[in-house]
Amino acid sequence: MSDVVVPIKLACLDLAGTTIGDIATVERAFAEAIATQGIVPGTGAYARAMVHVHRSRGCPKIEVFRGIFPGNEAQAQAANLTFERAYEGALERAGLVPVPGVVEVLDKLRGSGIKLSVITGFSRATLSRVLSVLGWDEKIDLALCPEDAAGRGRPWPDMVLHSVLRLQIEDVRQVAVIGDAESDMLTGRRAGASIVAGVLTGAHSRERLLKGGATHLINSITEFPDLIMGEELGTHQIPATAR
């Protein structure tokens, strides 16, 4: 990979598994949702559905359910509605736990003049609830879900490109993307971001992140500011032969 020749002006950050540590909560909500449609734990259908859920991490939740219930839009929509209720119910009961150090990361990036856009596969209603629980309205510049991009969530590049347009970034090379899933990596590469950082704290393995096109791998989001502000660029860079 060639050296980055433009400064990073925009960071697009994933939520679950990257900035908030709620992977188990998400998976429980998926399990509850598919159970209402007759797919229950202990069956082969349940095992196959949860494998699909894991492989599809980061994608729009409705698209995940369409993959589980192909050709049955009503069933997919019903499961998606149950997922949203189950997840938001979990927020009410237990709240959310940000990844250690993430608030300091957000403050450091914004203090350096870098715009911050949160992108997610949650619906607009769920995203709004998550941000309300976190209290991050003053810490980020933008929060986008698939509904903001005509339904084209990850792995499409649209949410990153919408962020570029809405925050008036001059060049897609001034963008850094961070996420914990293969779909995050695909989104960043397809959008033309200079840095597509895979964080090893979430859903997918190093191998899956590399398969998606990660330019860098980091152990935690706390390493992200130094990476995108140039202090450690090269330290985490992945040689082209490894991709």
Rank of each mutant, 00 (worst) to 15 (best):
A33N: 05
I34S: 11
T36G: 00
T36V: 12
Q37V: 00
G38H: 14
I39G: 08
V40S: 06
V40F: 01
P41K: 01
G42Q: 11
T43M: 07
G44L: 04
G44Q: 06
A45Q: 15
Y46F: 15
Y46P: 00
Y46R: 01
A49F: 12
M50H: 13
V51M: 03
V51I: 15
V53Q: 12
V53G: 02
V53N: 09
H54R: 11
H54C: 08
R55H: 10
S56F: 10
C59N: 13
P60D: 06
I62K: 04
I62L: 11
V64C: 12
V64L: 13
R66S: 01
G67F: 02
I68S: 07
P70Q: 06
G71H: 00
G71F: 03
A74C: 01
A74F: 00
A74G: 05
Q75A: 04
Q77V: 12
A78V: 00
A79Y: 02
N80A: 03
N80D: 13
L81R: 10
L81P: 00
T82D: 01
E84W: 05
G89D: 00
A90H: 06
E92Y: 02
R93F: 12
A94Y: 08
L96V: 04
L96Y: 10
V97Y: 06
P98E: 07
V99G: 04
V102H: 10
E104D: 13
E104Y: 01
E104N: 09
V105H: 13
V105W: 14
L106M: 12
L109N: 13
L109D: 06
R110F: 10
R110E: 08
G111L: 07
S112M: 14
G113E: 14
L116F: 10
L116E: 09
V118H: 13
V118D: 06
V118E: 05
R124E: 14
R124H: 15
A125K: 15
L127C: 15
S128N: 15
S128M: 12
V130H: 14
